[in-house]
Amino acid sequence: MSTRDRTAIPPRRRRPRGSRAERFAPLVLLAPAVLIIVGPRLWPLVLGINFSFTGDGDRDGTAVGFDNYLTLLGDPLFLTALRNVGLLVLLLPVAVAIPGLLATFLHLKVPGHRVYRGVYFFPAVLSPVIVGAIFTLLLAFDGPLNTVLGGLGIGPVDWLGDPDVAIFAIVGVHVWATFGMALVVFLAGFATLDPSLLDAAEVDGATLPQTIRHVIVPGLTRTIQFVFVTTLIGMLTSMFGLVYVMTSGGPEGSTYLPEYYVWIQQGQMNQPALASAASTALFLIMLVVGLAQIAVLRRTGGED
């Protein structure tokens, strides 16, 4: 509203209304954004968390306090799911090191690096269901991998049927299917690496491990941290498809993840409130992980 407009109208009656409008204007302008965030985003979240404090079956709709959460803590399947989350965190360095190493080789222009770049990225465009189906065939007890191992004189391994092996098989397949993205991020990181440092290392006669240890890793600290963050999120939120297709949570419940647990409780056991409690627990885990990651990223940002 320009000054001229304002003076054109008698100021006495307009002043107070104008100032009130001015006071409300920011709220009105913000309202659509706030409503979009609160309506379709926060409100369902609140409902879901609220729902997790109600009962299932006969106790549908009645408040049960923390009963669902106590049930979760007493359910060996949920505890297995949490333990598997811990395992994923432990395996994270491996999941980051693989694309890191491969990106290093690509950056150092090993023979055929252009081909490899495409090949490595290719699985990232496949849906987990397709990847899962392919590897279910490959890893079957009478599948090709065991045939090859048999040819080498190594006894068959029941990759997806042995409770001690299956979760590693699934994580391995997940890493195989998703490391292409991390690889691209690493390659972008390499683009920011000062080539004169690599040249200097070469002139000084550094070996490849020495170059990685003293030049590449320090130079890519932020990239590595970023890849850690995104890989962990990927592991925690997008392995459902693989678990569903490859093992159905088995054998012996050894490959349960929180997401899969939520799905089983809601869809198969008809316990939506318990499923809500489990998803709230998953949400809290993600919140803690996310806040920790923000803290890490902020610290490194401060260092620059």
Partner: peptide, 18 residues
């Protein structure tokens, strides 16, 4: 504040009552 709201409303009923 969000947590407080959640605790206060906790168990008020199912997401969509019967």
């Amino acid at each position: 504040a969000l947590a407080a709201v959640l605790v206060l409303t906790a168990g008020c009923g199912s997401a969509a009552g019967p």
